[in-house]
Design a protein around this nucleic acid. Structure first.
Length: 90
DNA sequence: ATTGAGCGA
């Protein structure tokens, strides 16, 4: 399950995010989106959890909770885009 | 408001 976490502290990094979610289950991967030009956090990130039950549990527990002093919002991630940008061509 | 980046054959 893909999880979206917003309103993160700019100090929050992948490790911080992953550590927080790991309290509730197996984290497949965690990533805080960083601005590639400034290198600063964009204030939100994504966490992937292989176990849906744990994922939902983590969302409930972490949503509206505090991380690095910031009250964050955690929810199921929305798909990046609907229609395929590129079609596979072989 | 609060939805990314990367990349092989």
């Amino acid at each position: 399950m893909n999880i979206f976490a917003a309103k993160l502290n700019y100090d929050t990094t992948d490790e911080t995010l992953q550590a927080a979610f790991e309290e509730f289950g197996e984290v497949d991967s965690a990533k805080v989106i960083m601005d590639k030009f400034t290198g600063r956090s964009k204030g939100f990130g994504f966490v992937e959890m292989s176990n849906d039950a744990e994922a939902r549990n983590a969302i409930n527990a972490l949503n509206d909770s505090e991380l690095d002093g910031r009250t964050i919002v955690v929810k199921v991630a929305e798909p990046k885009g609907d229609r395929p940008q590129r079609r596979e061509r072989y």
